[in-house]
Design a protein around this nucleic acid. Structure first.
Length: 225
DNA sequence: TTGTGTTTTATTGCCTCC
DNA sequence: GGAGGCAATAAAACACAA
């Protein structure tokens, strides 16, 4: 990006000017100012600041002006009608390109945010798998032990194991698991059933220990994204 | 001053619409 | 079929660092 350096040979209107798009009978209204000289001896010249300013203003009002408007604008600016038409065409292309750039930035920010959340969930998931494996080993041994599963900053699960039964407690918003064993805490009871699977009394909270690891790897493509 | 990257003006060819 | 729009691209103008 760089700024146009050119100096203006014409006075710049002191107040913002909004072009009025003329009807069929009207003439294009431009602020009074000296006509632009058409000293365009067929070499490629950049339009001066005033010409660009007027064209920009017109573009704001109408990005696709009618032929007659373009002709009148060309007369006022000392340009060929074709130059004006091409300027509008290029301007539309530049605007579209900028718009796409902005949309890309928004989408990228959104993607980065999602990717970050995904990574953190993935880490949590991996940690849970390790802890579940540990739990399985202990239940197979038939020990009698309290196991604390850490899921994230605000949730902890305590499982009390014996040879054939598991009791799980979910503690939320507590750093110490014992803090939340009181009234109102969210308690999850999981029971071993005949075939070795685990089930809980919470709605929709059923999983099978024999399959747990396999279940997690069934959708491994999704996690490997 | 020069080389390089960016921006602007202009051309070309294709497409759509009336 | 002609007019006008768009995408791709060329070429000139320009900014700027080395």
């Amino acid at each position: 990006m760089f700024e146009r350096r050119g100096t203006s040979a014409y006075p710049i209107p002191s107040t913002a000017w909004t072009p009025q798009i003329p009807s069929d009978e009207e003439e294009l209204q431009l602020p009074s100012m000296p006509s632009f000289s058409s000293s365009n001896n067929n070499s490629k010249r950049r339009f001066n600041d005033d010409q660009v300013r007027f064209l920009e203003s017109m573009y704001q009002a109408d990005s696709r002006p009618a032929l007659r408007v373009k002709q009148q604008l060309a007369n006022k600016l000392g340009l060929q009608p074709r130059q004006v038409a091409i300027w509008f065409q290029n301007k539309r292309a530049r605007s579209k390109s900028k718009e796409i750039e902005q949309e890309y930035s928004i989408l990228k920010a959104s993607y980065d945010d999602l990717a970050s959340k995904f990574q953190s969930l993935k880490r949590e998931n991996e940690s849970l798998h390790i802890q579940v494996q540990r739990l399985r080993q202990l239940t197979v041994k038939g020990g009698n032990e309290n196991i604390e599963l850490e899921t994230d900053d605000t949730t902890k699960v305590l499982l009390q194991t014996s040879s054939h039964e598991l009791h799980g407690t979910i503690c939320q918003n507590s750093t110490e698991i014992t803090d939340c064993w009181g009234e109102g805490s969210n308690v999850l009871y999981m029971h071993r059933i005949a075939d070795g699977s685990l089930t809980s009394t919470e709605d929709g909270y059923i999983f099978e220990t024999n399959d747990l690891i396999d279940n997690s790897t069934r959708n491994s493509e999704w996690w490997e994204m």
